[in-house]
Simulated scan of single mutants.
Amino acid sequence: MAQVNLTLDFEKLKDEVVNSGLNDVVKSSLVLILNQYMEKERDEHIQASSHERTSDRKDYRNGYYERELLMPSGNIRLDVPRTRSGEFSTEVFEKYKRQDKALLISMLEMVVNGVSTRKVSNITEELCGKSVSKSFVSDLTKQLDPIVNEWATRPLNVMYFNYVFVDAMYIKVREQNKVVSKAVYIAVGVNENNRREIIGLK
């Protein structure tokens, strides 16, 4: 991987800070830093800086296109450099792609822990500035169905449990346009390694 040396325009950064709110300061700073980082990446790829004449040049600049990137502070819009050949590709989006994965995993965890799809949508927008529809959250949670089904239908006759406990917890569910209290029976076993695990529920 090429080593990119980055020189920031601190005057421009200072102007962004002075003229922004706190959250905007973070976003503006990230935009400035990442835009300059990508610019340096393109210089390294081309092997020539802007307006430099050199026999080592591999490609030519070809403007920019806009692309959004989800960061912990919210969505930011970046100017992604292009080259004439189209061979240049920045590492910035690949590097931060895990932010999107982390967000999706967090949303799934919220649903598993009983947070409604409406609240998940509101929380996501409040924390990330990214609007997520309730239907998107519902579609996302469907990814859990195969995992849950595999667990629910796994064979139990291949395991040995020293102890089995059965207990019930009561949850509120919507039934025929009414919210009622229902018992969920949970079987917990202590396996051969003396570790507890949920055997099943109904």
Rank of each mutant, 00 (worst) to 15 (best):
M1H: 13
T90K: 01
A183C: 14
V190G: 02
N157P: 00
Q176R: 14
T83V: 08
N191V: 12
F165I: 12
R84A: 09
S106F: 06
M71H: 03
D100M: 14
S85K: 09
V179L: 15
V26Y: 06
K182H: 08
K172L: 07
P81C: 14
K172W: 07
E41Y: 05
N35W: 06
V17N: 02
V111I: 07
P72G: 12
C128Y: 13
Y65H: 14
V115G: 00
K202C: 15
T153P: 02
P146S: 03
L108T: 01
L127W: 06
H45A: 15
R196D: 00
Y37A: 15
T7V: 13
I46D: 02
M71I: 05
Y163A: 09
R84Q: 13
F165E: 01
Q143V: 10
V179N: 09
Q99V: 15
V26F: 01
N113D: 15
R82E: 12
Y96L: 11
E39M: 10
G86Q: 03
Y96N: 05
K27L: 05
N19W: 01
V120F: 04
S85F: 07
K97C: 11
A187Q: 06
S28A: 15
M71V: 07
D24V: 01
D59F: 11
K97N: 14
S89A: 15
S181Y: 01
L201P: 00
S89F: 05
R98P: 00
S106L: 11
D139E: 11
E109M: 13
E87T: 06
E192K: 09
R53C: 05
V166D: 06
P72S: 09
G74T: 01
R174T: 06
V31G: 05
E150T: 13
N193H: 10
E87H: 10
N23S: 07
R154I: 07
S181R: 05
F161C: 12
R195C: 06
K40I: 10
I147W: 02
S28M: 07
T83M: 07
T124R: 05
N75P: 00
G63T: 05
K202W: 02
S20G: 01
V80C: 11
N75D: 11
I171F: 12
T141Y: 00
G63Y: 03
S89L: 10
V184H: 05
N113P: 01
T54A: 11
G74F: 04
E192D: 08
V184N: 03
E197S: 07
T124D: 02
K97V: 03
A168I: 08
F136R: 00
N157I: 09
N191A: 10
S116I: 08
N193R: 08
F165W: 08
K178E: 13
N113T: 13
P72C: 10
E94H: 12
F161G: 11
S73E: 00
S181H: 02
A2C: 09
V190M: 05
V18P: 04
E125R: 05
D59V: 05
M1K: 11
F165K: 01
E41C: 11
S181N: 07
M107E: 04
Q176P: 00
E39Q: 14
V31S: 03
K182C: 06
R53D: 12
Y185D: 05
L70Y: 04
I46R: 04
R118V: 14
K182V: 04
P81D: 09
V184K: 14
Y163D: 05
V148M: 13
V115W: 03
N113Y: 09
E109T: 10
S20D: 01
E126M: 15
E109G: 13
K97W: 00
S28H: 02
